[in-house]
């Protein structure tokens, strides 16, 4: 997918684990893993808001558009 989730980088910068984030925003570790590994098809505004609040970041810090290379 052309949308890349940079959750791993953000967590690393904030010295926070995925489990801690999950506990703070009340989202299961399984769902956060799906998001982190780029397997999610969509993200709810409420999830985005919660992550941005917990990590003190903007949506643009979490998501990046990288055009797929044509094969």
């Amino acid at each position: 997918m052309a949308i890349v989730v940079k959750l791993d980088d953000l967590l690393h910068d904030r010295r926070m684990t995925l489990t801690e984030l999950g506990q703070r925003i009340d989202i299961t570790l399984a769902n956060l893993s799906i998001l982190k590994t780029g397997k999610a098809r969509a993200i709810r505004f409420s999830t985005l808001e919660a992550i941005c609040q917990a990590l003190a970041c903007q949506p643009g810090d979490l998501l990046r558009f990288e055009p797929e290379k044509e094969t």
């Binding site: 989202i27 769902n31 956060l32 799906i34 998001l35 397997k39 999610a40 098809r41 969509a42 993200i43 709810r44 999830t47």
Partner: peptide, 8 residues
């Protein structure tokens, strides 16, 4: 439903 399943 498939879309919803992939929604976080």
């Amino acid at each position: 439903r498939e879309e919803l399943e992939g929604t976080v």
